[in-house]
Write a protein that binds this DNA or RNA. Structure first.
Lengths: 225, 225
DNA sequence: ATGTGCGTCAAACGTATGTTTCAAACAGAC
DNA sequence: GTCTGTTTGAAACATACGTTTGACGCACAT
């Protein structure tokens, strides 16, 4: 065995367990026993549990971030000068995610779920790590979104982007369970690609919704079509 | 002091700590010391940490669920016969949430954050507890959504509902953090009511988006590196 | 053969957790 | 006042955690 695959075994196991159970709820002992390596191996190879978490993110975020930069480069080149549309920007992102080389068929949903957890679980160190290491492609995505939705105020845009992130992270992270339910209920099979194909129009429509009414259209007034 | 306020002190402290740190990351010792009660009081009054979590949810979910049922009753009465529109249904839900009697100014955001956590953190016991106790208003909401979007196929509707849930749960579960970012970046203060007022149009637009295109609308042939 | 460096292993460490114990304090009824 | 059931208090319990230790095995250069 070449340069000991212990490191990868740990990363594989950790990635999967973190995705299903969260960070604090996953102990090093669960990880090492799933990976069938010694407990001390984690601290030997990574230094600490937090460092392991960072390594798990780095392993999939680094190639993804490169792929994404390429997709954005190409998109901007194709539009030369004009800002890409909202649809184009969203599709560039989705395609980059979907086309990522996956280690297994659960790859994309683990990927999404981890991103969601990173946002949700307020682990300070993770947040700082991600901002530091991968802030740039994120900023670029934000800039593209901004140029694609000039009609929105900065505040409206900010919140709508959060809504998009939420819909995406949530759906993708529980896509396994959701696909099961759908299969049992309606007897339909679905691929992640199809989910993405449904998600993008939903998001685009939401982003381009008319300005937020700050008053509910309840009772008498504004019956709404 | 009437029937010992220990119980309420514990619930107040637990609610706040759970909302800011999550369940596993909050220890009974943090709770009891914040509430200035003895450590053993939690197990004496509630039986276990899990039971305390259930009690925290029950305290705000029971009145909320009642309020919601009333709101739906009233909405259906007002529409007599015709199914309520999507906007009306969504607003009935949001208003019920926003108008809940709050214990303090942080009430509503704690409430939202806890709901988000319940969805996000896959604590098995919580899920089961919530389904068992509050499954009915949820089913009713789903039925109203179905009647409000007859143009959607069952599959489309299913996924779009997941997208809505995701956007809501995600935003609500990190709303404090998101408000902080917004404050530091743009110097804007936001209330949960305003977030809700922005969320509803976003969701409504997404739900009513044109049928999903199953092919990305990129210019040429989906080049992508 | 010998020594060196890296990786593995079982075992232990210190700390923090949820829970239990049991005596003391307290309330209200008689 | 005395008794009775309920609530508090300090302390201990058993367990699980992340981390550290030091002995051991093994490849490989000398």
């Amino acid at each position: 065995m070449a340069q000991s695959d212990t490191v990868d075994r740990i990363l594989d196991a950790a990635e999967e367990l973190f995705a299903e159970r969260g960070f604090s709820e996953t102990s090093l002992r669960m990880i090492t026993s799933k990976a069938r390596v010694n407990l001390a191996a984690v601290n030997y190879h990574f230094g600490s549990k937090n460092a392991l978490i960072h390594a798990v993110f780095a392993r999939f975020l680094t190639p993804f971030s490169a792929t994404l930069e390429n997709a954005f480069d190409e998109l901007e080149a194709r539009c030369d000068g004009n800002p890409p549309t909202l649809n184009q920007t969203l599709w560039a992102l989705t395609e980059s995610a979907v086309r990522m080389p996956q280690r297994n068929e659960k790859g994309i949903s683990i990927f999404m779920r981890l991103l969601g957890l990173a946002y949700t679980q307020s682990q300070g160190h993770l947040r700082k790590f991600l901002e530091l290491e991968y802030g740039e492609p994120f900023s670029r995505f934000m800039r593209l979104l901004k140029e694609a939705t000039p009609q929105l105020s900065a505040v409206d845009r900010y919140w709508r982007i959060q809504f998009m992130l939420g819909a995406t992270a949530f759906t993708m992270s529980s896509s396994d369970a959701l696909q099961d339910i759908l299969r049992n209920k309606l007897g339909v099979e679905t691929t992640v690609q199809e989910i993405a194909a449904r998600l993008v129009p939903f998001l685009a429509a939401g982003m381009q919704a008319p300005d937020a009414l700050l008053v509910p259209p309840t009772s008498s007034k504004i019956p709404v079509a």
